[in-house]
Nucleic acid binder design. Structure first.
Length: 802
RNA sequence: GCGGGUAUGGCGGAAUUGGCAGACGCGCCAGAUUUAGGAUCUGGUAUCUCCGAUGUGCAGGUUCAAGUCCUGUUACCCGCACCA
């Protein structure tokens, strides 16, 4: 057999598959469906990274196997193409972002196709296509109509040097990603989405889905539910100052209060505060600080006491001082806390600095030395009617007491904030809202969707922080859809996350112009059966899209509460030096070169064999050779091929075992061990010296999802009939997965002394008898008492002697 | 600080969930083939004081039996970061 020409063969099959639409999902809803999804890429100018194919190959294997198992499989691909890098590139090189996007997509698509993924390209989508973002805008309008989209004054990141608004990711560590100057806060009116309204459901419904545990925990932590109580303190002004606490049980230990610098009472109390100048100075200082400075670790506590206003602790009527401090956040709870320095670390630090009393109310630590925060073991002291109770019991008792006396009530809080949904940028979906002086914010009529992004000469950010669209007066000035009067269009655009929050729905019916997808298509295809993507999207894309999906479920657009029934995540592929791949580190591996030098099948095999799929693994230009050798040895099987339509007796068990292993490993996302099993099988075949047609046929089917080109080529060369991708997945017989005889070890006191071969179903007595009669065992037992004899079926015998 | 994860040969990693630690691959060593190199094939490859003993970050414990379970501890990685 001639050497395997991967370049020719891979191109040949890729062409055949695309021309025949081999992997197009069918609309035949009588077949069982399977929806495999990978995160669609952002088509950056750098092109494909070797990280992309890791995820794509893993689910390609699942998709290909499911097809062979008779499923109607949807495995689509598209482009998440709005976003800043494209816009920045466009500005720098004076090319319109639309052109940049088009070029990048063409390059990406060519690269993906060269790897032989079984994507249904007839369903390709692009978030920047007006026929797509029409529906992104439509969903926004529904959110607006239900009161879940609203406008609010918000601080944005602003780079004074670039004169430009930055996304949080671009303002990491408080400096502009591009120019390095310090980012300041600028207050602007922003569109917000009320994801907080769904906080509880986003937690609860995690119980119904099959996500890997770390994704669930990360989402739960991010949403950050806590239960506690709101407690009303009466201020000496007569106002009620409400605080939120998770430890109402420690109320007797509250020795002062702290409110955030932004608290509304500060203005109200201005004329009563004796040190108002000092307070104002502190407020201004806090406002000037960036988020980064305000949240810096181990920072010394600062604050100012309010002179002239105090508050009364409702449990004991004691008057206590009030402070302002930036360690209390305006955005969480009520923006005010009761401080219990004995049992809260931050309060303790503050109390030490300002020399405030520390009263122990939970026994168990030394509160003069450090705060005692343990809830599990403590017993209440110095707390009147709570004395002697364990903490958990006291929590219940105090809540009842607060409710009864009218001083407060139980309260649930979330860390999750509403989603800031506007960007002062050009390359995003226009927000389909106009502002009318008479009618306020008015949605444009749905019949006018899509509201297309206007063509502009300059899409650069403006000096004043307004979107580039604001300069287009012709476009901005419009009439109010409600009253017909003068109105202006919203000029901000949607964030990068908008288009990806529902794209999996569009794949179900990508060319529909009447709806985001037909009801029939959604009923059939949804939910996504298996979704794989990066951990970095756990608290962004994954959470946002669950939120949108739940909303669409509520308004009857989608048939399922949750979009994805199963979510897995891949580890990163690191550079050869074990560091993250990056241009600056010079350790980037280009997939094109690998395809060119080794072939797509080898790239696919290696990326699956590189290590545990869920963990990071360093690239090795040495190791990849092993996968190439394996495929070449599979090709060379044709030289030792014999007739035969049944497995040979020597290889029968090995085949059944391997089929079982490979089938299960694909379902469990363990492609590395599936490949190891096939390599072992190949070694067994070569040890035997020949392979028959039945054996080769099974091996090709098993290997096909991993290495689709070479297997299809051998299938054709050996005339197995039809196309390999249209045959049925291999089956195994559980009974034939076990060898008739098995080697087990004989241990004395847990140490291996001998090995014996026994029948697989041999009785315990017989096995023990054989073990006892071994020379070494006899010798070891000589003069000792046998305490115990253990036989683990098919594994070992352990004789315990004294 | 909180939350999650990881730790096994020279390297990437396996280990039926408590039952022969190191599957499979890389690398390395030896041999075959080759004018030579490369490629390919065959065999070997945890360590040591090698008939035996020791070995899964470290220290204990449970068990006939521990990489796996329990207690404590160290290092590294990721996420969040004053959330009351």
């Amino acid at each position: 057999m001639a050497n395997y020409n991967y370049k020719k063969v891979e191109k040949k099959w890729q062409k055949i598959w695309e021309e025949n639409g081999t992997f197009y999902a069918s609309d035949d809803t009588s077949k069982p469906k399977y929806y495999c999804l990978v995160e669609f890429p952002y088509p950056s100018g750098q092109g494909l990274h070797v990280g992309h194919p890791r995820s794509y190959t893993a689910l390609d294997i699942v998709a290909r196997k499911k097809r062979l198992q008779g499923y109607n499989v949807l495995y689509p691909m598209g482009w998440d193409a709005f976003g800043l890098p494209t816009e920045n590139f466009a500005i720098k090189n004076h090319i319109h972002p639309e052109i940049v996007t088009k070029n990048n997509i063409a390059h990406f698509k060519e690269q993906l196709q060269s790897i032989g993924f079984s994507f249904d390209w007839s369903r390709e989508i692009n978030t920047t296509d007006p026929s797509y973002y029409k529906w992104t805008q439509w969903i926004f309008l529904q959110l607006f109509k239900k009161g879940l989209a609203y406008k609010k004054e918000m601080a944005v990141n602003w780079c004074p040097s670039c004169k430009c608004v930055l996304a949080n990711e671009e303002a990491a560590n408080g400096v502009c990603e591009r120019c390095g100057s310090e980012v300041i806060r600028k207050v602007k009116s922003q569109w917000m989405l009320k994801i907080t309204e769904y906080a509880q459901r986003l937690i609860d419904d995690l119980d119904e889905v099959d996500y890997i545990p770390r994704v669930k925990t990360q989402q739960r932590n991010w949403i950050g539910r806590s239960t506690g109580a709101e407690v009303d303190f009466k201020a000496t002004t007569g106002d009620i100052l409400t605080v939120y606490t998770t430890r109402p049980d420690t109320l007797f230990g509250a020795t002062y209060m702290v409110i955030s610098p932004e608290h509304k009472y500060l203005q109200k109390w201005a004329d009563k505060l004796e040190n108002i100048d000092e307070i104002k100075a502190y407020q201004e200082a806090a406002a000037r600080k960036s988020d980064f400075e305000r949240t810096e670790v181990n920072k010394d506590k600062t604050g100012v006491e309010l002179k002239g206003v105090r508050a009364v602790n409702p449990v004991n009527g004691k008057e206590i001082p009030i402070f302002i401090s930036d360690y209390v956040l305006a955005s969480y709870g009520t923006g005010a806390i009761m401080a219990v320095p004995a049992h809260d670390t931050r309060d303790w630090e503050f109390a030490k600095k300002f020399d405030l009393p520390i009263i122990e109310v939970v026994k168990g630590g030394d509160v003069q030395k450090e705060a005692f925060t343990d809830c599990a073991t403590g017993i209440m002291v110095n707390s009147d009617f709570l004395n002697g109770m364990p903490v958990e019991e006291a929590k219940v008792a105090i809540k009842d007491w607060l409710t009864e006396k009218g001083f407060g009530h139980e309260k649930v809080n979330f860390k999750l904030r509403d989603w800031v949904f506007s960007r002062q940028r050009y390359w995003g979906e226009p927000i389909p809202i106009v502002h009318c002086e008479k009618c306020g914010y008015v949605p444009i009529d749905e019949s006018e969707l899509p509201l297309e992004l206007p063509v502009v000469d300059s899409y650069e950010p403006t000096d004043n922080g307004e979107s580039p669209l604001s300069k287009l007066t012709d476009w901005v000035n419009t009439t109010c859809p409600h009253c017909g009067g003068k109105a202006t269009r919203e000029t901000d655009t949607m964030p990068q996350w908008a288009g990806s929050s529902w794209y999996f729905l569009r794949y179900c019916d990508p060319h529909n112009n009447e709806a985001l997808a037909s009801k029939e298509a959604l009923d059939y295809w949804m939910p996504v059966d298996w979704y794989n993507g990066g951990m970095e999207h756990t608290t962004l894309h994954l959470l946002y899209s669950r939120f949108w999906h739940k909303f669409l479920y509520d308004i009857g657009v989608v048939p399922t509460k949750e979009p994805y029934s199963k979510r897995t995540s891949h580890g990163m592929i690191l550079g050869e030096n074990n560091e993250k791949m990056s241009k600056s580190r010079g350790n980037v591996v280009n997939p094109d070169e690998i395809v060119d030098n080794y072939g797509a099948d080898t790239l696919r095999m290696y990326e699956m064999f590189i290590g545990d799929f869920e963990k990071a693994a360093p690239w090795s230009s040495q190791s990849i050779k092993g996968c190439k050798r394996f495929l070449e040895r599979v090709w060379a099987l044709q030289d030792i091929l014999e007739e035969g339509d049944e497995y040979s007796s020597e290889l029968e068990v090995a085949f059944h075992k391997t089929i079982k292993k490979v089938s299960e490993d694909i379902d469990n996302l363990k492609p590395n061990t599936a490949i190891a099993a096939m390599m072992s099988l190949l070694n067994d075949i070569y040890a035997k010296g020949s392979v028959n047609k039945a054996e080769l046929r099974s091996l090709l089917i098993m290997l096909n999802p991993f290495a689709p080109h070479i297997t299809e080529e051998i299938w054709e060369a050996q005339s197995f009939g039809g196309m390999l991708n249209e045959t049925a997945w291999v089956t195994f017989d559980e009974e034939k997965c076990v060898d008739k005889s098995v080697e087990i070890v004989v241990q004395i006191n847990g140490k291996v002394r001998e090995k014996i071969t026994i029948g697989v179903d041999e009785a315990q007595d017989s096995v023990l008898e054989k073990a006892r009669s071994l020379e070494k065992i006899k010798a070891a037992c000589e003069g000792k008492t046998v305490v115990k004899e253990i036989y683990i079926k098919g594994r070992l015998v352990n004789i315990v002697v004294k």
